[in-house]
């Protein structure tokens, strides 16, 4: 299988997600199938094809540099599970 169990562990760690051993097996299987399919596509000779970074063919969508205040601080903080009157709060991220 092209995706190892270490790969699954690494990816779940990067995604900050926890899985049971059974789920990990299933993920390893699914991801391996995706990679296999990509390998199939890689069989095509694409040396003369420009890489496509975006599937949208529109270009240059801009807005002018104009400021606008949209929501109040109260609204901004409304859905936060942990907050003060003015700040969002998270568990301490720096250990001294």
């Amino acid at each position: 299988m092209p995706v190892s169990s270490e790969d699954v562990n690494k990816i779940s760690k990067l995604a900050k997600l926890k899985f049971s051993e059974d789920e990990k097996k299933k993920l390893q299987n699914d991801m391996s199938r995706i990679i296999d399919y990509m390998d199939k596509i890689n069989e095509l000779d694409l040396s003369n094809v420009e890489p496509l970074e975006n599937i949208n063919e529109t270009e240059n969508v801009f807005r002018d540099d104009k400021k606008k205040e949209t929501i109040s601080r109260e609204e901004a903080l409304k859905n936060a599970p942990s907050k003060t009157d003015i700040f969002f709060k998270v568990p301490k991220v720096i250990k001294k």
Binding site: S82, F87, F88, V90, K92
Partner: peptide, 11 residues
């Protein structure tokens, strides 16, 4: 902001 609380980080 790390220095407003012992146990939490403020954002």
């Amino acid at each position: 902001i790390h220095d407003l609380s012992e146990s939490e980080t403020f954002l």
